[in-house]
Amino acid sequence: MAQQVDPIRRRLLFGTAAVSAGALLTACTSNDSGSSDNSAEQAPVADGKPGKPVTIGFAGPQADHGWLNAINVNARERAKTYKDVTLEITEGSNDTAAQIGQIETLINKKVDVLVILPADGKALTQVGLKAMRAGIPVINLDRVFNSPQAYRCWIGGDNYGMGLNAGHYIGEKLKDKPNARVIELAGMDTLELTKQRTQGFDDALKNYPNIKKVARQAAEFTVESGQAKMAALLQANKNFDALWNHDDDQGVGALRAIEQAGRDDFLMVGGAGALSAFQAIKADNSVLKATVLYPPTMAASAIDLARALGQGKGLGGMAEFEIPSSITLYSAVVDKANVAQYMATGFK
């Protein structure tokens, strides 16, 4: 998961992560007879009908986390839905030199479009620039390159929005409780995304003067770290009302620690959208009551965008002839009321 794109850049906000990119890319209906003569000419838009063949190169990091594996799955499955798309996908690596080599191989193969989720956006900026200079447009997925010249379009999640929505959800649940106390199980503090999630959470809590954050502990996005760090939080905090955990994978470990401690006196909100979290929310038999999405379906949307770009088409529902330069996905809150809607998007 990744740093957020610079907020001053123009962004297109999706209303919900569950809305498929296929729906976004369907053709617009023609203007009716009552439309003004001054209306914009209809742009050619991408749809599901076979068109110009497009070879898409896809390069991502090693799938050593449930969310990253779901990124690869979403890319492959979306590409299969198009008869005019050929997907060249790399093995994936967390070694920046190895990933750069994989991308250079795709450049040498002269793919039509590249979709890149860099292991390190800063370290891979130069290879993004190399592709763009070679005339191969780049869809930069999630972890943003340092230069906007290194990509044609960025699409990714909203880390600040995750924290903001988690904070507002907890705030609304506790707004009538005097002296409410919350704690936070964060991700890796070396990552900018973790800082953004915490900032969003803290900013949301400012709207609820009765709520105080009394503890914060960083973990490492793994089950093992989630269990160990949550156990420490529970030992140090005997009384609190809510927990926000940044990541559903480490949340599996956190729930183990909570169950082992026999605690059920608070509510928990997770992050990302793992299937295990959705199942626990639906069962409603643990402290986990909601999770805030960081949807891996963005990889499917990236394939849609790459196909549209390769065919020289825009997006249905928009007047412009070109795809936008930046798309930020919305961090929807999933709880028992709407979990059935999102279940199919959950990653393992």
Results as ranks from 00 to 15, higher is better:
16 T>G: 05
76 R>P: 00
90 T>I: 12
14 F>N: 04
156 G>Q: 04
234 L>T: 08
347 F>M: 06
48 G>N: 12
43 A>M: 07
270 G>A: 09
344 A>N: 11
238 K>D: 12
196 Q>A: 15
263 R>H: 10
90 T>A: 13
57 G>L: 11
23 A>M: 11
198 T>M: 09
174 L>K: 05
67 W>K: 09
264 D>N: 15
9 R>K: 13
72 N>K: 14
101 G>L: 10
169 Y>P: 03
266 F>Q: 08
233 L>I: 12
79 A>W: 10
17 A>Y: 01
271 G>L: 07
87 L>N: 05
145 F>Q: 01
113 V>E: 05
206 K>P: 04
37 D>F: 09
51 G>Y: 09
245 N>E: 13
150 A>Q: 05
103 I>F: 08
237 N>D: 10
269 V>Q: 03
250 Q>W: 01
161 G>Y: 03
290 A>K: 02
25 L>Y: 12
83 K>M: 08
179 N>K: 14
57 G>K: 10
219 A>S: 15
46 A>Q: 15
113 V>S: 05
109 K>Q: 14
188 M>L: 14
306 A>V: 04
246 H>D: 11
215 A>N: 10
214 V>D: 05
341 Q>W: 11
114 L>R: 09
260 Q>A: 14
38 N>H: 09
62 Q>I: 08
136 I>Q: 05
154 W>Q: 02
340 A>V: 09
285 N>Y: 07
18 A>V: 13
285 N>W: 06
135 G>H: 12
30 S>K: 12
319 A>E: 11
299 A>S: 15
340 A>E: 15
142 D>L: 02
200 G>W: 03
255 L>H: 00
318 M>C: 07
157 G>F: 01
115 V>W: 04
267 L>D: 02
111 V>I: 11
140 N>H: 07
321 F>K: 15
152 R>Q: 13
124 L>Q: 08
19 V>A: 04
203 D>Q: 12
159 N>S: 14
285 N>A: 14
182 V>F: 05
297 T>C: 05
126 Q>R: 12
18 A>D: 10
268 M>S: 09
200 G>Q: 07
71 I>R: 06
329 L>P: 01
327 I>N: 03
218 A>S: 15
25 L>W: 01
88 E>T: 06
117 L>F: 08
326 S>R: 03
282 K>C: 03
348 K>F: 10
